[in-house]
């Protein structure tokens, strides 16, 4: 039960039911599709880059609460960041989920995305949390 409450937290539930990041954007500069075959999570990220800065970011698609929340939280975090900053945050997030070594200072940088830390205790759902972040990595490294 502890387990449950530490996963389906208010932050996650709120983001999974909010839809303000779930839309198409006008004239995106690139798009990337991500898919999680085991669970069926399926998202498409749309980005608008302004030189080196992520000016706008959104997603469409469907999936479980964890994947939807993780995507929305990521969009909030990365909008307005430079490409390099975004890649660093993605790297920290993946390390957090994989329970690799990570400093308190790094965790702070993740802001709300820290709410997903406990997913690392639920191996069956790790892929749901990671999907958006790996898809984003591919998108900006294109």
């Amino acid at each position: 039960m502890d387990n449950l409450e530490s996963i389906y937290t208010d932050v996650i539930m709120q983001h999974s039911t909010e839809t303000y990041n779930k839309k198409k954007i006008d004239n995106p500069t690139a798009m990337e599709h991500g898919h999680n075959p085991s669970c069926g999570d399926d998202i498409t990220l749309e980005i608008k880059m302004n030189n080196n800065v992520i000016e706008d970011l959104s997603f469409t698609g469907h999936g479980c609460a964890i994947s939807q929340a993780s995507t929305s939280i990521m969009i909030d975090l990365l909008k307005g960041k430079t490409k390099e900053e975004a890649l660093e945050l993605i790297n920290i997030f993946i390390r957090m989920i994989k329970r690799e070594k990570i400093s308190e200072e790094e965790l702070d940088k993740l802001e709300e995305a820290r709410a997903l830390q406990n997913i690392s205790n639920m191996p069956a759902r790790v892929k749901c949390a990671e999907l958006a972040w790996y898809t984003m990595q591919k998108l900006i490294e294109k």
């Binding site: 039960m1 387990n3 449950l4 996963i7 389906y8 669970c39 069926g40 999570d41 999936g63 479980c64 609460a65 964890i66 639920m122 069956a124 759902r125 749901c128």
Partner: peptide
């Protein structure tokens, strides 16, 4: 309104 994966996680708990 609830994705089956979330249902099975909650049932698992």
């Amino acid at each position: 309104g609830v994705h089956p994966h979330d249902v099975s996680s909650i049932l698992d708990s």
